[in-house]
Amino acid sequence: MGETLAVNFREDSTVRGHSSWWATVVACAVAVVACSGGGASGDRVLVSAAASLTDVFTAMEAAFEDATPDVDVVLNFGPSSGLREQIMEGAPADVYASADEANMARLVDAGEVAGEPQVFARNRLQIVVPEGNPGGVTGLADFARDGLFIGLCADGVPCGVLARELLANAGVDPVVDTDEPDVRSLLTKVAQGELDAGIVYVTDVVAADGVEGIEVPPEHQVETAYPIAVLGEAPNRNGAEKFVAFVMSDAGRSILSSFGFAAP
């Protein structure tokens, strides 16, 4: 190791040009401070949203910024639980949109939410298979069938908890090949044909290429609510409230429904 890497950093080359090197360090430090101070981005709203909202909130951002040019929305997508964790650890976010009520409730209990969370959309689950359904999957019973490659979201992220609830409702004990960390990685593996079936939100099936959805019997269906809230320590409370109001407005609702989300 010392061999290869040290060669480039022999003393002769580092000692020479001492002052210009210092100048670089100082310049870098100044640049970093200037950027993080964020002089120009005065009305920035940081929205931490569940990964399953990626497409719809990207469209929401564009529409909102058209209507409210003085506010710049920055979207941070991730698993609802991971985002909640970040916020509880002090990450500076203005708005939190979760894919389930449990994570929002924990955030409310932790005193991180300003006011009441509002449910802005609902979603339901669907079986997802690769285009052409190579595994010949017809229903939830196939999740216990030998010889198929089956994936679910990990138990702990909302889509994983709900999928297991759905399977339990149907009395199916699944034989799982992978517990994917989030919806997107599960969808990728299904679209690629690596997995024969998975369970995701109907909105994910609508958005994804290369996959087909199979409805589950309504009596087993698990519906989920998406709550949104302005955070108590929001650096930009005003902008955050504007964004939440837009999501709840008719304009927001019509964007949501175009991506397959049901009204609250």
Binding site: V157, T178, D179, E180, S185, T188
Partner: peptide, 27 residues
């Protein structure tokens, strides 16, 4: 690893994967 091999306890779930998944639900 998680992208290519997936994540299943006892078969493909190595320590970093276990940490990542546990971070979601059981810190």
């Amino acid at each position: 690893t998680v992208t290519f091999a997936g994540n299943l306890q006892g078969r493909t779930q190595t320590m970093p994967l276990a940490v990542f998944v546990a971070l979601e639900s059981d810190r």
